[in-house]
Amino acid sequence: MKISMTVWENRVSPVFDSARSLLIAEIMNGCIANRTNFEVTTCGTLVHKLLTSSVDLLICGAISQEAATLIENAEIEIVAFIAGNQDQILEAYLQNRSLQPFTMPGCCYQPYSCKLQGLQTRAQWRMK
């Protein structure tokens, strides 16, 4: 399976819609087998890259509804409103830990983050 993350320096990019770098990591047997960074110039190319890279999951910061709809329509699961160091988040994800400690402020009151409260994402479940 493939997971992706919009990154800025060594962190999750704060806003997906203006992110300029996409990390795609291929996971095999619970470990990262391969990771590649793609530089993008526009949100359109970022979405296009995601839709054409057979990605199962996107981890990102804040995201607009328009962009989220496009990605979810392509059956890519989104874990949004995540902030922090990219490697720590990837590690937590691979170890099947909740990403709740990495949520952006103000997001824990939203129903969207229910999936982060100790629940596994579909992709985590598939990874097992």
Binding site: V15, A83, P105
Partner: peptide
């Protein structure tokens, strides 16, 4: 966002503007 959650966090994690990164 409640100020108790915002204070101490990086501004881009709270503000989330499209100019933060650039």
């Amino acid at each position: 966002i409640d100020r108790t959650e915002a204070i101490g966090r990086y501004c881009w994690e709270v503000f989330r503007s499209n100019m933060c990164e650039g």
